[in-house]
Design a protein around this nucleic acid. Sequence first.
DNA 1: AGTTTATGTCTACGTTCGTAGACTTAGTGG
DNA 2: CCACTAAGTCTACGAACGTAGACATAAACT
Lengths: 205, 205
Amino acid sequence: MANEHSGTSGEQRESKARRRDAAATRAAILASAIAAFARHGYDGIGVREIAQDAGVTAMLVNRYFGSKEQLFAEAVDTSFAPRTVIPEDPPALARELARRLVARTAPGAETLDPFLLMLRSAANPRAAEIITQGIERHAGRALANLLDGDAAAQRAMLANALIAGVWLFRTVLGVDALARADPAELTVRIERMLAAVLNVPGEEA
Amino acid sequence: MANEHSGTSGEQRESKARRRDAAATRAAILASAIAAFARHGYDGIGVREIAQDAGVTAMLVNRYFGSKEQLFAEAVDTSFAPRTVIPEDPPALARELARRLVARTAPGAETLDPFLLMLRSAANPRAAEIITQGIERHAGRALANLLDGDAAAQRAMLANALIAGVWLFRTVLGVDALARADPAELTVRIERMLAAVLNVPGEEA
DNA sequence: AGTTTATGTCTACGTTCGTAGACTTAGTGG
DNA sequence: CCACTAAGTCTACGAACGTAGACATAAACT
C-alpha cells in the first residue's frame, strides 16, 4: 500500500508510461486540462488532478505552462479552435447547427465541448476574461463570416447564446423538459429559433 | 487598529447595527447570500464573506441554515420565486421578455438576477442539482402555464435557454457583439427568436 | 565511459475553506 | 435583583489549494 516508486501501476489514465518526451508530455497535460476544465470548470479542478490524469506530478504542469491560469488560457485557445466545417447557406446552416447540438447534448453522450468548458468556468472572473477572448476570436468570428446581411457578429453571438443555453439546461443542469425531450422535435424547434436570427430577414420559409 | 469591540464602525454593509432579532438576522444573512451567490457563484464566495456582509460571524450562518449547501438551497428557492407578472398572450409575451432581458442585462446595470446565480453556480454538481429543482419548480412552470399548444414545458425551457445564454454573453462574459449592441436592435432580434418558439405555429406575424 | 543537460519528482510553505465545540453577551421573566 | 434562555462570537482543526526551491534521474553527446 506504500507509494510505488515505479510508474508501472495504473496511476495515470493517459497512456502506458511515456518515455521522456517534452512535447508529448506537454500535449498530454494540455489534453488532460481541456477534459478536466470541461468536466469540472476552472475552480472545480486542481492542478494535482490534472497532472495525475496526464501521468505526471503537479509541479511539471507549472514548469510547462507557468501557472494554472496560463494553462487554462492555452486550454481555451486549443479547445475553441474550429475543427469541423459547417455549411455555408443559412437555411442549411441553422438545420445543421440544431442537429449537431441536439446530438452532442444527448444524455449520456459524455461529450467534451468548448461550450461545457465555458459554462463551467465562467464564474471565475479571470477565467471569464480568457473565455471571452477565445469566443470572440474563434467561435464568433467563424460563424459571423458565414452570415450575409448586417450585424453579422451580433446575430452569430445570439445563435451562440441559444446554443450555450441549451448546453446548460440539457447537459450541465439536466433539466428534464429539454434533457428528456424527443430529439427530432427539439431539433426542429431549435432550428426555427436559429433561423429567426441567422437567415436574412424577408425570406422566412 | 485593534479589533473594535463594539459594532459601531462600519463592518457590515447591511444596516446600522441590528439589535438581537433572530428573524431579521436570518433574513439579512439570506439576502446577503443571494447577492453573493449571484455575484460570485457557489464556489466563488465563502461563508465568512456572506456573514460579514450581513453583519454577523460565519458560525451564525451555519447555526441558522445548517450548512453552506442548505443556505444555497434556500437562496435559490427564494431567488427563483416569481415576483413580476408577465403578459399572457404570446406575441406580447415574447416582446416583453425580450425588452426586460435587454434592459436588465445592460452593461453597468448591476442587477442581481436568478439567472446570474444559476450561471455562476452551475459548475458545482451539488449546486447544479439544487438549481435544476429551482428552475423546474419556479421559472419553468410559471412560463409553461402561459403557453398554448403542446410541449409547453419544452418550449418554455427553450425560451429560458436563450435568455440564459444572453445573460451569459452580455453580463457574465461581456462579449462585445452583444454587450455593446444597440438595445433596440438587439431586442427585436431576441423577440423574433422567442416568438419562434413561444408563439403557436401557423401565425407568424 | 563520463559528463552534461533536459526532464521529472519531493518536500514544504502560506492561504483559504467549511464547520465543530466551548464560550460570552443581551434580553426577559421571576 | 437575579437567574434563565436565546442570540451571537472565539478559537481551532483538518483538508485542499497554487506554487516555489531543492533534489533525483534518464537521455544524449563527446
